[in-house]
Simulated assay, not measured.
Amino acid sequence: MPQAATTERFDRMRHWIAQRHNLAPSDVLLHLAAGDASFRRYFRLLLPNGSTRMIMDAPPLQEGNNTQRFVTIAQDWQQAGLPVPRLYIADQEAGFVELEDLGDTALQQHFVDADDPTTLTWHERAIALLDRLQTQASTVALPAYDAALLGRELDLFPEWCLERLLGIAPPNSWHELRQHLIDSALSQPRVAVHRDFDAMNLMVHDDTLHLIDFQDAVAGPLTYDLISLLRGRYCRFSASRYAIWVEAFRQRAIADSRLGDDIDTATFRRLADAMAAQRSLKVLGIFCRLTLRDHKTGYLARLPHFLAHLQDSLSPWPVCDNFRVWLADSFAPALDAELRFRGIIGGGTS
């Protein structure tokens, strides 16, 4: 958003707050708290009584109906007993929402490294919250995570990562893999899916995890949010640790009827890995789009991490061998060369 438009937007938000709290606009104390990969921004509001609120700014021109979706889901999930920020005021037409201030401690701030007991414990707590989300949240009002949406997400990889960043074509095996990943996702039981169940969207407040940034929630595959956490942007876990968590999740899902007892360990692992591959390909495409189209910095340096996740997800399954070989022989060297050319530390796939 241009600087003039940003300033105008900020002034409009200040007046919106002033009217609702009977303040003069000059007495509205706002400080930027966080940005977002989208056009959303978050500001901390200090009220005269010393309390604070969080203001979500979601410009309608760029964010469409995301404010309405956020409000609807927040109300539904709060009624379901899930830990989401309290809503105070929402102006869906203007794109402003006043929320409970959950502080500045996102889950990743408690991480040390992938093997540290503290990191593992917090992941266990996050998975327990995911169990609650899937068993308590209704899918009735959520849009479907259908084949069209899964396909659009996958197509971000050849468009933005291959063509626009690297200038290379997808391999002949791409279309077969693409369809395999869509079919696998659609074969899973449907639950409420946050769609970005990453540590950055789990806030630690009063020693409790809270869900934020859920406006893109859908009714979709059982494993999606699990692999968003376990193969997210902050940790790369060992194959054994990942397998333990996936199997424990399967057993709990069977026990509470989210999953049928005919899905054995190997089948569920294939479903989880295929879902993880789909998300890794999507993220690779999104991070390139954020860089090339939206001029946001820092995302290209994260590509090797998600390439490693993608390779981890494909390596156990012979059906993916052709694409996996192409990743190693063609894609990884091209990505490494591009990142080095751009002077980005972290080229390579480790």
Rank of each mutant, 00 (worst) to 15 (best):
F341C: 11
R14D: 01
R302I: 04
L45C: 03
D262H: 14
D183G: 06
T135F: 09
S238A: 11
F214I: 09
T118C: 10
A266Q: 15
S187W: 03
A272E: 07
I89P: 04
S26K: 09
G95T: 02
H123W: 11
L133S: 05
L307F: 06
I73M: 08
F214W: 05
H110D: 06
R302C: 07
V246H: 00
T291I: 07
P60W: 06
D101C: 08
P85W: 06
R14W: 01
T72S: 12
R44E: 01
D225E: 06
R236D: 12
L209V: 10
G232R: 06
P189Q: 03
G151Q: 15
R9S: 12
T208N: 12
A33D: 09
E8T: 00
W77Q: 00
G167A: 08
R231M: 07
C161A: 15
Q278R: 08
L300V: 05
Q311E: 15
Y242Q: 03
P117I: 14
Q3S: 14
P2D: 10
D11Y: 04
M13I: 11
T67F: 01
L177F: 06
S257E: 13
I254H: 06
L45N: 00
R9Q: 14
A4S: 14
Q108T: 08
L162K: 02
T265R: 15
G50M: 12
L142D: 03
H110Q: 15
F10D: 10
A4L: 11
F237P: 05
V84E: 02
W122V: 01
L335G: 01
E124H: 13
L46I: 08
A58V: 00
V193F: 09
S315W: 08
D216W: 01
D256Q: 11
R252Y: 02
R41S: 06
L300D: 03
L30G: 10
R236V: 12
L209R: 09
P316K: 08
E93W: 05
A24L: 14
I263N: 07
A128R: 15
D213W: 09
Q215T: 04
A94S: 07
R289T: 12
Y88H: 14
A18Y: 02
D91A: 01
D91E: 03
N172M: 11
T135I: 09
D113E: 10
S26Q: 15
Q134M: 12
Y145N: 02
A255H: 14
F249P: 00
L166F: 03
L99H: 01
D261S: 15
L107E: 09
W326F: 01
W16H: 00
Q79M: 13
D256K: 12
L281F: 02
R53E: 11
V112W: 02
D113V: 03
A141S: 14
R252P: 04
D321T: 13
S173W: 02
L45S: 00
L29Y: 09
I89H: 12
G260W: 10
Q109L: 10
L259V: 10
N172C: 11
G167I: 08
G348K: 11
L45P: 00
R289H: 10
P117W: 10
D116H: 15
F96T: 00
Q68G: 09
E159C: 05
